[in-house]
């Protein structure tokens, strides 16, 4: 009876210590990636290749999602505002919610699912097939050669993808508001211009997407590098990237919003 209870408490302690040591490894790993960045910049070809697979190949899902999110936002905003005769403000609602929240957050969620999981699977498989150890045997630093370009490509791609998402979303909102619902096109742009601040809204949205890009890329490359090198462990690591990445985005979004927009 007492032994059973002690076992439970030991399991709890074991779990806590394991989680803490994982957090510590993730930080040590991040420092190693930073150290590897300078060496990686000597070979920009590596970065270009990763920008292609992380950024360019994520573009289509971002454009399609942005278009439809913008169109839905315009429809819903119109429905809510038309009762007050304020349907000209549809553009303000669409643009502000895209720039401040939906652009960075949805882009980051899609990015975690599309690019983050791929990064984890790629690095994890390299570990499982001992390619990373092979590099070390040849005196090639795998963090510098494999991880750093992928991490940097993620950090660079996210703000660009978020900007494209918001721009396409605004165009989708324009399509619905002006072409479908018959609002005035001049009022659409001028209302948005009178309410949207360059640094307050667009700038803070870009800072958000940069932070999300950093965190998602960090989680993705760490989960891949730290995974248990079996097919089962690789599957778990990929799942963890998407789950932890998405949760981190949503929690960080609340913290950043509270810091930036609460006055």
């Amino acid at each position: 009876m007492v032994n059973n209870l002690l076992d439970r408490i030991q399991a709890l302690g074991h779990g806590t210590l394991a989680a803490l040591s994982r957090l510590g490894r993730a930080n040590v790993f991040l420092m190693a990636v930073f150290a590897g960045l300078s060496g990686m910049l000597m070979r920009p070809g590596l970065l270009v290749k990763q920008l292609f697979s992380v950024g360019v190949q994520t573009l289509i899902i971002i454009v399609v999602a942005g278009l439809f999110v913008g169109m839905v936002m315009a429809l819903q905003a119109y429905y809510a505002l038309v009762d007050f005769g304020a349907e000209d403000s549809v553009s303000v609602m669409v643009v502000l919610s895209l720039l401040r929240e939906l652009g960075p957050v949805i882009t980051a969620l899609l990015f975690a699912g599309r690019a983050g999981s791929a990064l984890t699977a790629e690095i994890g498989l390299m570990k499982a097939t001992e390619q990373l150890s092979g590099m070390e045997m040849m005196a090639v630093n795998p963090v510098e050669r494999v991880v750093a370009p992928r991490f940097l490509a993620g950090v660079i791609s996210m703000p660009l993808l978020a900007a494209i998402f918001s721009a396409v979303g605004v165009m989708g909102g324009y399509l619905v508001a002006v072409q479908m619902l018959g609002l005035d096109s001049g009022a659409f742009w001028s209302q948005a211009q009178s309410k949207v601040e360059l640094f307050e809204d667009l700038g803070n949205g870009m800072i958000k997407s940069l932070v999300f890009g950093f965190v998602v890329s960090w989680i993705a490359v760490f989960e891949g590098y730290d995974c248990i090198p079996t097919s089962e462990g690789l599957g778990q690591a990929t799942t963890r990237t998407v789950v932890y990445g998405s949760l981190a985005i949503l929690i960080l979004d609340f913290v950043l919003t509270a810091l930036m927009f609460s006055k």
């Binding site: 553009s91 643009v95 703000p159 660009l160 494209i164 918001s166 396409v168 360059l198």
Partner: peptide, 15 residues
């Protein structure tokens, strides 16, 4: 495209 999107947002919807 990313920079153009940023530019478009800055010019056409912000102040």
């Amino acid at each position: 495209a990313g920079l153009a999107a940023l530019f478009m947002l800055a010019m056409s919807v912000s102040n």
